Every structure is written in structure tokens, then in C-alpha cells.
Amino acid sequence: MNTATMLRAFCDAVEQRNGKAFAELFTEDGVYHDVFYGAFAGSAKIAELVDDWFYRTATDFRWDMHTPVSDGHTLYARYTFSYRSTLPEAEGARAMFEGVAIMKLRDGKITEYHEVANTAPAFVDIKFAPERIAKIIARQGAALKARPEMKRHLVE
């Protein structure tokens, strides 16, 4: 599967709430590191991330990958991601943020997915209080810096 086809299948699976199809893009020992929910290892957990976790407080997903670059072992792509929040305080607002997907590949499948994302605009979109946003962003920053394998992706 070429890069463009894989990325479209990746996004489509999330938009269609198809965890099985999403998990099939990963190796059996694959790990998805989500910016909000943490690490999900193995096919069953990766499928659960899409089928359950993503849709607990959101619906109407839209995910697009842009300008992918790959050497066959590592794939980078900018993305835009949005959803309609079902949290009471959001009052049905649409949240959107941008990020970069970082994927390690083996035999045409994803072994690891990481992302670096500017999530703050999404929290403003869904009407989180500034204090709540500050706590979330601080927690995400601390978690990212604690992962030594991601340090080379950070701009200090």
C-alpha cells in the first residue's frame, strides 16, 4: 500500500468508527501513542481506541493528512483533525487542531504512531475554562518531555 493510500485508510477508519480497519494498518505489536489518551498497544487496544475512546465524548470526526514525507522506515505528515464535542459545556461545538504524525514503519505497516499537536485551540473551541486548558497543556508537555524517544522531535 502506498503512503497516500495508507494515510487515507488511516483517516477514513477513524471517521467511520472502524477500529478493526484502523488496527489492521498496524503490526501485531504496534503501539498508538495518543496525545490525549496515552498508549494503546496491540490490535485489540488500538481498535478499542477508535471504537470506544475517540467516540466517548465526540462525534463527526474529520482527519486529513498533508505533505507526507517517508524514507520507508519513518513517515511524517502534517495533519488537521476535528470533531464535534458531546461534552455538555461544549454545546455541540466543533473542535479543531493541527499536528504532526510520526510513524515508524515495518513491512508497510505502522509499528509506532506518535503525534505532536497544538491542542489548545480545540479546548478553546469547546469552551474549556482557561485554568482547565492550562492544566491539560502542562500535563501534555510534561508527558512529552518524559518520553526520551520523542526529544529529537521537539524544538527546544
Rank of each mutant, 00 (worst) to 15 (best):
A47C: 09
A47M: 07
E48C: 12
V50D: 05
V50Q: 06
D52I: 15
D52S: 15
F54C: 13
F54E: 05
R56A: 15
T57M: 09
A58V: 02
T59G: 08
F61N: 05
R62M: 11
W63T: 09
D64G: 02
M65D: 06
H66N: 05
H66P: 00
H66E: 07
T67M: 10
D71E: 03
H73L: 09
H73I: 00
T74Q: 13
T74C: 11
T74V: 13
T74H: 11
L75V: 10
Y76W: 12
R78W: 06
R78F: 07
Y79Q: 08
T80K: 07
T80V: 11
F81A: 06
F81R: 03
Y83F: 15
R84G: 07
R84N: 08
R84A: 13
R84K: 15
S85T: 08
T86L: 12
L87N: 09
L87W: 10
P88K: 15
P88R: 14
A90M: 10
A90C: 11
E91M: 15
G92E: 05
G92C: 12
R94D: 08
R94G: 02
A95F: 05
M96H: 11
E98T: 13
E98D: 12
E98P: 01
E98L: 11
G99Y: 08
V100M: 15
V100C: 14
A101G: 14
I102A: 08
I102T: 04
I102Q: 06
K104W: 11
K104D: 14
L105C: 13
R106N: 14
R106F: 11
D107N: 14
G108V: 02
T111R: 09
T111F: 08
E112N: 10
Y113L: 06
H114A: 06
H114Y: 11
H114Q: 07
E115D: 04
E115L: 00
E115P: 00
V116M: 11
V116Q: 08
V116N: 04
A117V: 07
A117M: 02
A117T: 03
A117C: 09
A120P: 00
P121D: 04
A122G: 13
F123K: 00
V124S: 02
V124K: 12
D125P: 01
D125I: 03
I126Y: 02
I126G: 02
K127I: 03
K127P: 02
K127V: 04
A129C: 01
A129H: 14
P130S: 03
E131L: 04
E131R: 04
E131H: 03
E131A: 13
R132Q: 10
I133L: 01
I133M: 01
I133E: 00
A134D: 10
A134M: 02
K135D: 11
I136A: 04
I137P: 00
I137M: 12
A138Q: 12
A138V: 13
R139T: 15
R139H: 13
Q140D: 08
Q140F: 09
G141K: 15
G141T: 12
G141Q: 14
A142M: 09
A143C: 08
A143H: 10
L144N: 09
K145G: 12
A146C: 06
R147M: 15
R147T: 11
R147Q: 14
R147I: 12
P148W: 01
